[in-house]
Design a protein around this nucleic acid. Structure first.
Lengths: 370, 370
DNA sequence: TGGGTATATGCTCACTTCGAGTATAAGTGC
DNA sequence: GCACTTATACTCGAAGTGAGCATATACCCA
């Protein structure tokens, strides 16, 4: 229903986009579903995601659509519609993630994106928009600590941080050092798997995320503005430590530095980072993992999947003790013989726990390693 | 900048409202800031919040405004603008809460609300919209357990739940019983202070929240639709237990049952419930309490405020051990002599903890009582 | 002046949880 | 049979949690 003119000023309305971060897992690989840029908003003019203004052609993006007032009674219904249209996947878990609304997140017009997190069991996809599963850690190579500290941190990130600190005005040095330490677990700080978004934003400012370089060419002020709002659970918290870096003429990026990880169109990689952060945070206190697993599974498989999302290896014996104590699963009585060793018991998720305990999750308090 | 017609279909745009849940504390009372309905969206036609369609005149509502494309580079800037215009309060913490977008949350047109949580230190307010501090627990009397189990639970809520269960079809009984037990900590389930929104939604369905009755008169389907999306951290999780109650002709509300708690206009009390839930959840792992406290405070005062938000009394000695162990505060060296007993040491918040530990909060794992 | 009361603060103790290691069970392939 | 792989069980010390007891220092009032 169009808003009646004279009652609604043109300023007061904006396009409302819906974005879906669809997550699954296959083997030990956490997966993100992307589509071709041209397909995300079918029927749009050219000039949207994938062309040169957005950072070169061929960038994938998140499945998205605009809210359709006649079809979508609720936002979630809208997202369900778009997921089923573009991918056909049955979604097992839905959660609103964050609403992105910076003025210039889409060049040329004001467009909000209400982003949703969706979990599905893995299956091959096809659809109008060439949907494709992507390894999450190809987008965020620094987030995968399962095989130890990712080499990209020492090779590229720490040097960039040091250069950034070296170029800092003295009054900013302390703040910046603190921020870098905390975000990447340097010095005395420990790596916190959950701070995915903080890390992405810092790398973005350091021009180590490729979108930054492209966007920067269009004008530094815009690039800086895009970074300012901070979604997710760590929301406004960090603002208290003093204002974050404003647009800062002093620091010049290395010309066209190699971007780290595979970029997505526009701010979609940022949205994906917010989703990974939310997912990791939830692992500890909500039984969300089970939504990407089949009906029955072995404990090793469960651990594999948790490790895939957490980006961290876990202590095997403690993991099963935790799962046992949490009463999250029950044995089906069957066995998986394909283990290559002793057969593993198969388990199923006990949905009843949802009513038994306030916050049923694998109580991974600090997502502790092995 | 107006969207150019012909490019944007009328369906794809909606009004974007911004809502602020401004929270503070005075004494032992947690506070929510409301304004007169007519002031929330100045310059609107009549027919918005406070008139009879919304549940009777005189209902207060949350401070709100529409996104102004020319003024608000980001959503957060927009909320800052509206808070400062309508209340003049200096906000110390900001966090995006949830985006509400059901078709009929505002009668007559599609309007999104992007809600923000804001924390301020208490001070008297005045402004164009008659801003007023409200006791949070007058809106949600069942949430305050500081002086034991609130009488309203046994007097009104449990009877209503029992009537609801008695009127249930047999195949729904189990699901409904589970839901009620879990939500209100009946039987074997424990009361979980965080599940504020679950409780509000159940009471809403039971017609114990006043907005429901008013809205119901306009048409049951609409009322049911408004309940469907579930914001906050417990987002989609509960959907897994099977679909929630759909619009259900079988259960008839008692005619005009006494509403529990003070209602707000439209769905604003729901938004406030989401905010309280978020705040309670955050207490444990982010040092947000300090944003409503003055620079220096006694440990008892700190505990008082935590208890006010948590709605639960805490064990004093353990609380101070927790605070001490968390290294969240440091003594100022001064004392508060107005205690009426032994003078209390004054402390200040150590902002450095934000960089030392991943999730610095009062580690109230289960918000454990005394 | 001294006791009663209120508040603040320090400490103990049993119990649970957590991290890490060691040991055993039960399959496969040769 | 053996070597190898994976699954599962159990142990033990360190740290954290919940509850209570004890002490310190103010005020009030007889």
């Amino acid at each position: 229903m169009p808003t009646s003119p004279g009652r609604t000023s043109s300023r007061a309305s904006a396009r409302v986009g819906l974005s879906a971060v669809i997550i699954s897992v296959e083997g030990t690989t956490p997966l993100l579903l992307t589509v071709e840029a041209s397909a995300a908003f079918p029927g749009e003019d050219a000039g949207f995601p994938g062309d040169d203004a957005g950072g070169g052609p061929g960038l994938a993006c998140l499945p998205g659509a605009h809210l359709d007032d006649s079809l979508d009674g609720t936002l979630e219904q809208g997202v369900r519609r778009l997921v089923s249209t573009q991918t056909g996947l049955p979604v097992r878990y839905f959660e609103q993630l964050y609403t992105f609304g910076d003025r210039d997140r889409v060049p040329g017009e004001r467009e909000l994106a209400v982003a949703y997190l969706a979990l599905v069991r893995y299956q091959a996809v096809q659809g109008p928009g060439c949907p494709r599963w992507q390894d999450f850690y190809q987008l965020f190579p620094w987030e995968d600590w399962r095989n130890g500290r990712p080499e990209v941190i020492d090779r590229a990130i720490i040097p960039a941080i040091e250069a950034w600190l070296a170029a800092s005005a003295p009054d900013r040095l302390a703040t910046r050092t603190e921020r870098a330490d905390l975000t990447f677990g340097l010095r005395h700080a420990r790596w916190d798997p959950v701070r995915v978004l903080d890390r992405f934003e810092l790398l973005y400012e350091l021009r180590l995320a490729d979108e930054a370089a492209a966007r920067l060419a269009a004008g530094p002020a815009r690039a800086a503005a895009r970074v300012s709002p901070t979604p997710g659970s760590s929301g406004g918290s960090r603002r208290r430590g003093g204002p974050r870096e404003a647009a800062d003429g002093a620091w010049q990026p290395r010309a066209r530095s190699t971007g780290l990880g595979v970029p997505l169109a526009l701010d979609h990689r940022r949205i994906a980072a917010a989703a990974l952060e939310r997912l990791r945070g939830k692992l500890a206190y909500r039984p969300v993992v089970f939504e990407v697993l089949p009906e029955s599974f072995t404990l090793s498989r469960l651990q594999q999947v948790v490790e895939a999302f957490a980006g961290q290896a876990l202590h095997k014996q403690n993991f099963r003790r935790l799962v046992g104590a949490a009463n999250l699963v029950e044995p089906t009585g069957e066995e998986d013989l394909r283990t290559g060793g002793r057969p593993a018991e198969l388990y199923r998720f006990r949905r009843e726990v949802l009513r038994e305990r306030p916050a049923p999750g694998l109580g991974l308090r600090r997502l502790g390693g092995p």
